[in-house]
Design a protein around this nucleic acid. Structure first.
Lengths: 183, 183
DNA sequence: GGGTGCATGTAATGGGTTACATGATTCT
DNA sequence: AGAATCATGTAACCCATTACATGCACCC
């Protein structure tokens, strides 16, 4: 019953390995990075980040150096150790698992016959609008990334952005189809 | 900092309200329903279902009746009360929130410059294949649902299936684009 | 007697967000 | 003096999965 998965699950630690591989950072900067660069498909809160960084140092995956900049509070900058880089490499080699994302909109839609049609339509309209906003933002990001100098990460960042674009476009079409159905 | 969301979050209870509105069921049957009908966009485990059903009875949202069928273990069948139906209606009226899904594949891809290209390609190939399998299954489901008699839920079930189809198709194209990029 | 499917549940564990708590520095 | 931003952390809580525990009924 309800079977065994030996959980080699991806977690905060792996995300931090990746981020620190781009450049050494403090916990606060990690949080900002998450929001500005991988925020479209990943999230981390302080409550996860700070303890994880500590653990990584304890496990020999990262090193900490306290630094002071003129006119700023002191900060603790973390960088990967040799072992941390190895660990990152290992993790990148394991195929990503697909968990079932819980999709609240689809759940509500599935029970649509119990709802009032106008409410339901508005559900879809709200989503369509949100997707349009996303799409515009993704195009912005794409343009910005295209402007970067040639660097190793560039092509991969573009791929992640284009995932967002492909998904948003497809789902907008789906929304339109649904709205037609609901007349 | 890290702001207040007054959490009217969707949870097991709401999903159960919906499922029980389709027909009265036992916890065991709920689990089966989840796997066979909404499993593509929702998940629930026994560890959630049984306690939630109990709570719903305590909150006056559902009623329990123990029934015995010849040659089967006894089971506890739950059905919605008046209040349960109202609660379902209210929930259906609230626009679904979008949480940021954590997408492990994109996370790995974002750090792609630290990985070996063959590993990375295989990540994408694995995903492409999984999507193809999904797509075939969705088409199967679509065909089956189209065969149903006319009933209130039918058009909504089709919408949820077509969401899966739209998404899978778009992401397969994305996979192909990525693979071309990675040569 | 043993495997399988039906059926109900709890406890341990994991992983995450939110709220709380504190403090430096800079700008207005 | 007060607001905003930079900076670090902990504790409470929530929700979910996994593993464990039990038992009936049926068929081989």
């Amino acid at each position: 019953m309800e079977m065994g998965k030996k959980t080699a699950r991806t977690t905060t630690t792996e995300a931090l390995l990746g981020l620190l591989s781009i450049c050494p950072m403090s916990g606060y900067e990690v949080r900002q990075m998450v929001e500005t660069s991988i925020g479209n498909f990943w999230s981390e809160s302080y409550g996860q980040i700070y303890p994880a960084l500590k653990r990584m140092v304890a496990d020999g995956l990262a090193e900490m150096k306290e630094t002071r900049t003129e006119g700023r509070p002191a900060k603790k900058v973390y960088s990967l150790t040799e072992r941390g880089q190895e660990r990152l490499g290992e993790w990148l080699g394991i195929p990503a698992e697909r968990q079932v994302y819980r999709n609240e909109l689809l759940l509500k839609l599935f029970f649509g016959s119990r709802a009032e049609m106008p409410f339901l339509r508005s559900q879809i309209e709200v989503r369509r609008n949100a997707l349009a906003v996303d799409l515009a933002r993704y195009h912005e990001i794409e343009k910005r990334v295209l402007g970067f100098d040639e660097q190793p990460g560039k092509k991969f960042w573009l791929m992640t952005v284009r995932y967002g674009i492909a998904e948003a476009k497809a789902l907008m079409v789906w929304c339109d189809d649904c709205l037609k159905e609901m007349q």
